[in-house]
């Protein structure tokens, strides 16, 4: 009988390249270790709600209607709520994936212990991704419920906003995980911030694309967050078309690429 411990850990036989069902064991570990941190979850769910109240309701009083996705005018709350859901999904996933994983790689020694079991590096990558998604899903549901009180869910399509938020989380978790494996010190988070901040501020989160000159518009249109915001906004406000599928594909590819890179890098970092 061959022992698992003696098998090469970075053995990319195809079924295992993106991890196996064993990755659920890691999810279980995370659930156990986070079980007593319900306050974290509560505050995480409330944060985008604070933004919605402040921007949508407070600031919204100063703003007349804004051009919505279909070209029709919408109120500012309607405009900003879907974007807040999308950015919350991005922020949560990126934070977990970069900060959380970097910390565990560097200090936690969690993964070293995990690898002494039958789990492989791709299992870790997949497990972490699943975990990010579960949290993201929880936050998305909470936010959508709150948003519905503001009458933001204008169309039945809005139900799909939750899976859309998950897809955004998936895309950014993949990206973030890949980045985390390249980070050497806390200072590298400055770079992550420098990437996230302009996306957060300019991807039509707070004001429509029409505000920009054409050149800048093109730049905004290629950012992943913009794709996410467009999807959620379209679904919530009922402006649904085939272009949303293309945008979804963009995010899915980003997730796959990120996961593949992270899985390989985990292998190299942990079994070197």
């Amino acid at each position: 009988m061959t022992s698992y411990a003696l098998q090469p850990r970075v053995a990319p036989r195809l079924p295992g390249t993106f991890g196996t069902r064993r990755s659920l064991r890691l999810v279980e570990r995370n659930i156990v270790s986070y079980r007593r941190m319900w306050l974290m979850f509560l505050t995480g769910a409330l944060e985008p709600v604070f933004y919605l109240l402040s921007l949508g309701v407070g600031l919204g009083q100063l703003i007349p209607n804004v051009t919505g996705p279909g070209g029709a005018p919408v109120t500012y709350v309607h405009f900003v709520a879907p974007a807040l859901l999308a950015t919350a999904a991005m922020n949560g996933a990126m934070y977990d994936a970069t900060f959380g994983i970097f910390f565990r790689l560097k200090y936690g020694k969690v993964y070293d212990a995990v690898l002494a079991t039958p789990l492989t590096p791709p299992d870790i990558a997949l497990g972490e991704l699943t975990w990010c998604l579960m949290r993201g899903g929880f936050y998305a549901v909470a936010f959508t419920i709150v948003a519905s009180f503001f009458g933001v869910l204008a169309s039945p399509w809005a139900v799909l906003a939750i899976p859309a938020a998950l897809l955004i989380g998936l895309g950014f978790a993949g990206l973030g995980m890949a980045i985390a494996t390249y980070m050497k010190s806390w200072q590298d988070f400055e770079v992550v911030n420098l990437l996230m901040m302009p996306m957060f501020l300019f991807s039509t989160t707070f004001f429509p694309l029409g505000v920009y000159p054409r050149g800048l518009q093109l730049f905004v249109e290629i950012t992943p967050l913009y794709q996410g915001i467009e999807i959620v906004r379209g679904l919530m406000l009922g402006a649904v078309g085939p272009s949303l599928l293309l945008r979804a594909l963009y995010l899915a590819l980003m997730a796959l690429a990120g996961l593949a890179i992270a899985a390989r890098r985990f292998g190299r970092l942990l079994t070197a």
Binding site: L59, Q61, L62, I63, P64, V66, Y76, Q187, E190, N193, L194, M197, P198, L201, F202, F206, F207, V211
Partner: peptide, 28 residues
């Protein structure tokens, strides 16, 4: 390492929040 984001941050922030949202605001 922090200088770049310390300088770019405020500029981006003022552009987005001040100028960008500012174009939408009519009263209050």
């Amino acid at each position: 390492g922090t200088v770049l984001s310390a300088i770019l941050g405020p500029v981006m922030y003022l552009t987005a929040m001040g100028v960008g949202i500012g174009t939408l605001i009519t009263h209050g």
